[in-house]
């Protein structure tokens, strides 16, 4: 027999810690760690709720498995993005002011000495 208040409290605690982790880190990979903690808090809550008697379809554990899978996919894509960011800018510091000039403005076409307007009248006369 177990009191379910304990896992619920742990879930709330983990979520708070995760939020702090997201906000306290400037390294993008470490921010992802915070996100993982929040996800695990959600998982724990699912398992806890699924442990109650009368939960249909074994929803708690099954949804937890799904969330784990989705978390795997998420971390995969997120790390790809982080790596690309690192390769492009050389840093993954989230407090850095983004370089606003990375998209080069469409420069005005270099006008190589514009030709003078053809003088139609002159042509006609000649």
């Amino acid at each position: 027999m177990i009191h379910l208040q304990l896992p619920a409290a742990l879930a709330a605690l983990l979520a708070g810690i995760g939020v702090y982790g997201v906000l306290a880190r400037r390294n993008a990979v470490l921010v992802l760690i915070g996100v993982e903690l929040i996800l695990n808090a959600a998982n724990l809550l699912l398992v806890t709720a699924g442990s109650r008697t009368g939960a249909p379809f074994a929803a708690g554990p099954v949804l937890t498995l799904f969330v784990i899978t989705i978390a795997a996919a998420e971390i995969c894509v997120a790390l790809a993005v982080v790596l690309v960011l690192f390769r492009t800018t050389g840093a993954i510091d989230l407090t850095a002011v983004p370089d606003l000039t990375d998209e080069p403005e469409p420069e005005p076409d270099p006008q190589p000495d514009p030709e003078p307007e053809p003088d139609l009248r002159g042509e006609v006369r000649s």
Partner: peptide
């Protein structure tokens, strides 16, 4: 959550 789960127990 705590009010939701207050006093809820599961026999495992």
């Amino acid at each position: 959550l705590l009010p939701l789960f207050s006093g809820v127990t599961v026999e495992l």
